[in-house]
């Protein structure tokens, strides 16, 4: 257990040292590249802002992600159970996913001007729901027919088959997709926060750092985002261990 925590912490410390050393050796000014030692004063000065903005970014990302889970699972179920729906929806979904979300951000910002929270949640949702829908549909459509037959031959209903077999069997794929979706949702939230005027969240803090030429602040925001991302990612990993831990093979 100690090893599991100490090893990554050690790796992080080495990373910070290398970063500091690189800036120091090249004698870069902080507008070119801030060093870790520049970040600490930034956090000290703006810690209240970091807490408030960080919370805003976090909750909007999580709400967007939850929406993506609900809608993604729903769409995935429709495509997983019906071949016709899969054929019909797949090209649409792929096309939708292929549109760079950075181009959608200004459109959404104009469409619902002023509705910061709604806009941000919407973009976080749009960017993260695709992998969830695809993984659920693939998980359901690749269910071996024998699994169905075993239950159907006993007179089980479709609902029973879904709850007893299809759903649990899809969980590993679902969590795999959720890990991808978590980081994507952060990208979505921040795109919106940076672009939308008078925005909130860490993205807006980043933007204000840019306007005020406060370069250490900009780097500090990046690191704060990375930390939030790590926290959310490991929450998903913990949930995966609880609900789909069986899929992990014991090292033999």
């Amino acid at each position: 257990m100690m090893r599991k925590i100490l090893v990554p912490l050690f790796a992080m410390a080495i990373f910070l040292l290398l970063w500091e050393g690189l800036v120091w050796v090249n004698d870069w000014p902080n507008y070119k590249m801030a060093s870790p030692s520049d970040l600490w004063p930034a956090y000290q000065r703006y810690w209240e802002l970091f807490l408030v903005m960080g919370w805003q970014t976090l909750w909007r990302t999580v709400v967007g992600l939850l929406l993506a889970i609900v809608v993604g699972t729903g769409v995935g179920m429709i495509m997983g159970f019906s071949r016709t729906m899969r054929d019909a929806l797949y090209p649409l979904l792929v096309g939708f996913n292929a549109i760079p979300k950075a181009t959608v951000v200004p459109i959404v910002a104009l469409m619902f001007v002023g509705a910061h929270d709604f806009n941000t949640v919407l973009i976080a949702f749009m960017i993260s729901f695709f992998p969830i829908a695809v993984s659920v549909s693939i998980g359901l459509s690749t269910l071996e027919p024998e699994y169905r037959d075993i239950l159907r031959s006993l007179g089980a209903s479709q609902t029973t088959i879904f709850w007893k077999i299809a759903l649990p069997k899809t969980l590993p794929e679902f969590f795999g997709a959720l890990k991808v979706a978590v980081t994507l949702a952060f990208i979505g939230t921040n795109l919106m926060e940076i672009v939308s005027p008078h925005g909130r969240g860490l993205g807006a803090l980043f933007d204000s750092g840019k306007t005020n030429s406060d370069y250490p602040l900009m780097f500090a925001v990046l690191i704060a985002l990375a930390l939030l991302g790590i926290v959310l990612y490991y929450i998903v990993v913990a949930l995966e261990k609880i609900f789909a831990g069986w899929a992990e093979r014991q090292p033999s």
């Binding site: 699994y147 037959d149 007179g155 007893k164 069997k169 899929a247």
Partner: peptide, 24 residues
């Protein structure tokens, strides 16, 4: 029914797998 592929549910223990039909 039993098939060439034993199709046991990986998320259940062997005991719970055997008990599955009794739930249905």
């Amino acid at each position: 029914m039993a098939f060439q592929n034993p199709v046991l549910l990986e998320w259940r223990s062997i005991l719970k797998n055997v008990m599955l039909p009794l739930e249905i």
